[in-house]
């Protein structure tokens, strides 16, 4: 029996700024989680990650993260760490929550 696949997003940090970035449906990178593409097929998620890992000249540390998408495809992260990454720190209005 195969385990059910939890849908995934591809995320990384931008090489220059260090900021969190997400892979979009058209293979671009966005600073907004809301732009992230949610992969529902495991082989597609893995292929997208491989593509991301190859883009050493613009990002650092790409990985797959559990996500869900509503009927319109709007993504949500499933873990609090990813929620924090998508916003910024809680002690100051710095990072994405203020700048993007």
């Amino acid at each position: 029996m195969t385990r059910a696949f939890t849908p995934k997003m591809v995320t990384a940090n931008d090489l220059l700024e260090g900021d969190v970035i997400y892979l979009t449906a058209d293979n671009k990178w966005s600073r907004l989680l809301s732009d992230a593409h949610v992969f529902t097929v495991e082989t597609e998620a893995n292929a997208a990650l491989e593509l991301a890992v190859g883009q050493q000249d613009r990002l650092v540390g790409a990985y797959l993260v559990d996500a869900s998408a509503d009927k319109d495809g709007n993504p949500t992260s499933l873990h609090f760490r990813e929620e924090f990454r998508s916003r910024g720190p809680s002690n100051y209005p710095h990072g994405k929550q203020a700048e993007v």
Binding site: G18, V60, G61, R81, R85, H94, K96
Partner: peptide, 20 residues
Amino acid sequence: TEDEFKPLRLMNGLYLQLHA
């Protein structure tokens, strides 16, 4: 590559953290 660069930046106190 990042694998080559990481030990060099760490030798100079530069980490990559959650947001920056």
